[in-house]
Design a protein around this nucleic acid. Structure first.
Lengths: 123, 123
DNA sequence: CAGAATCCACCAGGATACTG
DNA sequence: CAGTATCCTGGTGGATTCTG
């Protein structure tokens, strides 16, 4: 419809890899939370409702490993740990927002399609 | 940094839902394949290397359920089944391409970060 | 050709208890 | 406060066999 295909079959693997990387249950939610400003552990836990501290720890650790989130510790008592998006992390949030716009626009239709499909499933 | 945040916390759930929906191992690859033109079952199986027919069946079925892919059967012998993106499916491919561009640009750095992190993990 | 059915391994993710 | 450690379950995805 527009430009010649920029993504070749080979590149699709990279797309898929990124999608699988951020396509888990919590990663995007955490990134979105950190998009506004850096936050501390329990602050994140409160704002991302429903996440267990186990999964928050895992999510933040893999984000840090990939260089998407920076972890800074203040050795006070009690300790303060602050998480912030790196420039790389911020750059990721842009295309994710695009997908977010699409999601907001089309999620309703998708759910509708599902209901129709399930209703038509005679058995 | 730019416009006021368009995505509120509530909306992030939708984003996350879509990400989880298409963030599995094969969905995006199949959508990318169908982006060029409609294809038949084994044609897809060949082009999307490494997918089992089990997973291709599942992937196509959920795509059809969500109204992202259209399935048309020609009752010949042997039967011919063609899969094509719906307009909704095509509209999804756009933001996915944006994420694809990001992936191509930054996947190298991510892998590098991982190696660095793992190397620094003294134990 | 285009699946359906079955079996199985792995891992994401939840719950809970404990620690510096 | 910011984690770690352990246990457990459901779902994803692979391999194989069978069918119209």
């Amino acid at each position: 419809m527009d430009m010649p295909t920029r993504l070749e079959a080979h590149d699709c693997r990279g797309v898929s890899e990124i999608l699988m990387r951020i396509g888990d249950k919590w990663t995007v939610l955490v990134v979105m939370m950190l998009r506004e400003k850096p936050r501390r552990f329990n602050e994140l836990k409160r704002h991302v409702g429903g996440i267990s501290q186990q999964m928050l720890t895992r999510t933040l650790k893999t984000l840090e490993r990939d260089g998407l989130v920076d972890r800074s510790v203040r050795e006070t008592t009690p300790p303060q740990v602050e998480y912030a998006l790196t420039p790389l992390g911020h750059s990721l949030s842009a295309p994710v927002m695009h997908l977010g716009d699409w999601a907001i626009a089309n999620l309703g239709e998708i759910h509708l399609n599902r209901h129709r499909y399930d209703a038509a499933t005679h058995g």
